[in-house]
Simulated assay, not measured.
Amino acid sequence: MILFGESTPIPTPSMTVNPESVTPGFPGFALIVLIVVAVILLIWDMNRRIRRVRYREEVREELDAEEAALRARDEGDDTAR
């Protein structure tokens, strides 16, 4: 049953371009490999920098705790005199 007139056949597209001429080939592969290597190196460097910041923060906390303990001890010695 056709509602709006006769149906027309849908044309099948034919291949007009050589499939080998539209592939990225070796230059495309090499570019992707370079991008992947660059991203891996950037992630590695970022992790190193973040770890360094964490270590510095831990050292600061330890130094602050030692300093607070020394102050508390000094204040305790001053009140005993």
Rank of each mutant, 00 (worst) to 15 (best):
R51L: 02
A80K: 12
T8L: 08
G25H: 00
S21Q: 02
N18I: 00
V53A: 11
L34W: 06
T12R: 11
I32T: 08
V59Q: 14
M15A: 13
I50G: 01
L34C: 09
I50S: 09
F4Y: 12
Y55G: 01
I32L: 12
M15N: 13
E20D: 03
R71L: 15
E75L: 15
S21N: 01
E61S: 02
M15L: 15
I2V: 10
G28P: 01
D64A: 13
V36W: 01
S7G: 09
T23C: 01
R56K: 01
T79V: 14
R52Q: 04
G5Y: 11
A69Y: 04
S7E: 14
D74N: 14
D77R: 13
A65R: 09
A68M: 03
G28A: 01
T8W: 05
M1I: 05
A65T: 03
I10K: 11
S7L: 12
W44N: 06
V36P: 00
A68G: 04
V36A: 12
T8S: 07
A69L: 10
L70N: 10
S7M: 10
L42D: 04
S14A: 13
S7A: 09
E57C: 03
L3H: 06
I2Q: 10
V22L: 03
T23H: 02
L42W: 07
I50K: 12
I32K: 08
L41Y: 15
E67H: 15
Y55M: 02
E67D: 14
V22P: 00
E6K: 15
I32E: 11
T79F: 12
R52A: 02
P11E: 07
G28W: 00
G5N: 10
I32P: 02
F4D: 14
R73Y: 14
T79G: 08
A38K: 12
V39D: 06
N47Y: 10
E62A: 01
N47E: 09
P13Y: 06
I50N: 09
P24V: 00
